[in-house]
């Protein structure tokens, strides 16, 4: 039985399309004065956040509440990495509280996988972002946003659409999940980054790789800019923030080379002036704020499909 959503690789094309079509129905709720459905009444969703992430946490919280689930927010500040309570003990506590689904955000890659497969909990586990591994619901909301703007035909398909993802791919869980999901959905993904910010083995991923942003932009249907943490500069990944911006930042001049229909995306939080300039972030092409709205709808769809039906339709094999 499929119970967890740990990786975008867990989703077949049919799974992903079901989530996106369910999200499209739920998205209409956002425009109604009363935004609540009784679908998950009596179910408990725990947001287990070992890392600060207000955006993702409130997005999942809003999603669960709009489906009438009870929500427990568990901010486990000290992870076992910092000698606080261990992941296992936290999990056992949640299990004792009777959680039906646990949304886990953790700084260690694979922590949601451990939670799902170690026998500590029986609930469904949703990966809310783990280390430098994956962030599958972010990829789903990105795909949802793309399909609303770029989707073709009745199914709003992304087949053949060209998506350019730019920035710190090496440390980005968003890039990993997007590369997997967009490939599953038929889109053509190009990763653009300086060679120092690409993982070893990226050549085996189902994507194109380029070091040249200017060459990649004119063919793009969507451009997704990834956050670049200034700390990376100290790791010697690039010489200076200015040089990074010059080579890999999206500014007004580069934006002018895009096709008319091309959208600009960012998973947030943005570092304005680093990977994206303010005029681009605030331009008509930018769908960054809409991504947030869509995030709630997609997470509603994920929770609904994992918990709502008698046979959950998404997630990996147990």
């Amino acid at each position: 039985m499929k119970r967890h959503l740990l990786s975008a690789a867990d989703l077949s094309r049919a799974d992903a399309e079901l989530i996106l079509s369910t999200a499209a129905e739920l998205r209409e709720l956002a425009d109604r004065p009363i935004k609540k459905l009784p679908a998950l009444r009596g179910r408990t969703v725990v947001n287990l956040f070992f890392e600060d992430s207000t955006r993702t946490r409130i997005s999942f919280e809003a999603a669960a509440k709009r489906l009438s689930a009870d929500v427990i927010n568990f901010a486990a500040k000290g992870s076992s990495l910092s000698k606080g309570e261990s992941l296992k003990d936290t999990a056992l506590t949640l299990e004792a509280m009777g959680a039906d689904a646990v949304v886990v955000r953790h700084g260690a890659s694979g922590a949601p996988h451990r939670l799902a497969h170690s026998g500590w909990v029986r609930s469904s586990v949703v990966n809310g972002g783990d280390g430098t591994h994956e962030h599958p619901t972010q990829a789903l909301l990105d795909a949802f946003t793309m399909s609303r703007h770029l989707g073709q035909g009745q199914a709003r398909s992304l087949d053949g659409r060209r998506i350019v993802i730019v920035g710190d791919v090496l440390h980005s869980r968003v890039a990993r999940s997007n590369a997997l999901l967009l490939h599953t959905l038929g889109a053509e993904v190009t990763l653009v980054a300086p060679p120092t910010l690409l993982p070893v083995g990226v050549g085996t991923w189902p994507v194109e790789v380029s070091y040249d942003l200017d060459a990649a932009l004119p063919k793009a249907d969507a451009v997704m800019m990834l956050r670049v943490q200034r700390e990376r500069m100290h790791g010697g990944f690039f010489p200076t923030a200015r040089e990074y911006s010059r080579r890999y930042g999206l500014d007004g001049k580069r934006m002018a080379t895009l096709q008319d229909h091309t959208i600009v995306m960012h998973p947030g939080p943005m570092v304005r002036g680093m990977e994206i300039t303010a005029d681009v972030a605030d331009s008509d092409r930018s769908v960054i704020v809409e991504q947030v709205t869509n995030g709630v709808a997609v997470r509603m769809a994920v929770l609904y499909l994992l918990l709502g039906g008698s046979t959950p339709a998404v997630g990996g094999e147990e």
Binding site: S109, T132, H133, G201, W205
Partner: peptide, 18 residues
């Protein structure tokens, strides 16, 4: 470093030990 650096470490998001 967490595991052998290669295609798999990149996929799993675990820091590589080259």
């Amino acid at each position: 470093a967490q595991m052998n650096e290669g295609e798999l470490s990149g996929r799993l998001g675990l820091a590589g030990w080259p």
